[in-house]
């Protein structure tokens, strides 16, 4: 099923983060990593979350992915407020609405590409009878139909990341969160993976957020959010804003060199 972006009214956000604060440690060792982040993710958009090391990107990603709890603030995913959910309810929310792509792929070395994708379906409990076909389709959609029975050790970095994307896609998540998906890849594979992520984001029922340091991939972004010292410093849509676009093109060109 293809749902195209609406040209009319602004779609409702799939994810809303309101006033997110995260504090690690207590007493003298207390560190406030996030200091009140407001963020919503819209379907059909590829959002890049950028910022210097230690700015709170990964912590924010973990909170948005329901694998880390915020100290303060509200998080709503697919109309579900997460604040008072139990650990198992959070896991349930993850498996039904969130797909993850990790920097170091996090594939299971003892399972083939197909089995890695099927595992993501299996953790959902009862699945459609066509689950193996669904997994094959997911791998086909990332261009790996010829590698379904290959173990991760025999795949290139780019292929591994494609399997990871297929794994995230197989569960048809509302939100896809990627942590530095191109960091371990060469330029060609990085561009290819980002093109794939961009394609994935075109689904009008899904929002995609990538944490990245990689300026080479800015051109794929529908939206760029910068975070500094635990707060969002800029939130731009380069395709709608000429100044932002010019800035993005400059940074992108610098990244290419």
């Amino acid at each position: 099923m293809i749902q195209s972006k609406s040209d009319g009214a602004k779609p409702s956000p799939i994810l809303v983060a309101d006033g997110i604060v995260k504090v690690f440690g207590t007493g003298a060792g207390e560190v406030q990593v996030l200091k009140g982040v407001h963020l919503d993710l819209l379907p059909g958009e590829l959002t890049l979350l950028m910022g210097p090391s230690g700015s709170g990107k990964t912590t924010l990603l973990s909170i948005l992915g329901c694998i880390l709890r915020q100290t303060e603030g509200d998080l709503v995913i697919a109309n579900t407020k997460t604040n008072k959910l139990s650990a198992e309810a959070m896991a349930d929310l993850r498996r039904n609405h969130v797909g993850f792509v990790f920097q170091s792929y996090n594939l299971f070395p003892t399972l083939t590409a197909l089995e890695n994708v099927m595992l993501a379906l299996d953790v959902r409990g009862r699945m459609p009878a066509d689950a193996p076909q669904r997994a094959k389709n997911a791998l086909d959609s990332v261009g790996l139909s010829h590698r379904i029975n290959t173990y991760p050790a025999k795949l290139s970095g780019g292929e591994k990341q494609r399997v990871a994307i297929a794994r995230a896609l197989a569960g048809s998540p509302s939100v896809m969160l990627a942590d530095e998906p191109t960091a371990a890849l060469d330029s060609e594979n990085g561009q290819s993976v980002m093109q794939l992520m961009s394609d994935v984001s075109k689904d009008a029922s899904r929002a995609v957020l990538c944490v990245t340091h990689d300026h080479r991939i800015l051109k794929y972004a529908d939206r760029i959010i910068r975070i500094e010292d635990g707060v969002i410093s800029t939130d731009e849509r380069p395709k709608d804003d000429p100044v932002a676009r010019a800035n993005m093109e400059r940074l992108s060109a610098e990244g290419a060199h």
Partner: peptide, 21 residues
Amino acid sequence: SASIAGGADAAAAGPRRRLRM
């Protein structure tokens, strides 16, 4: 993107069975 796209509710459709992973 045509083959990549798919709604979040797609997985809920169709007959169900237990996988064995």
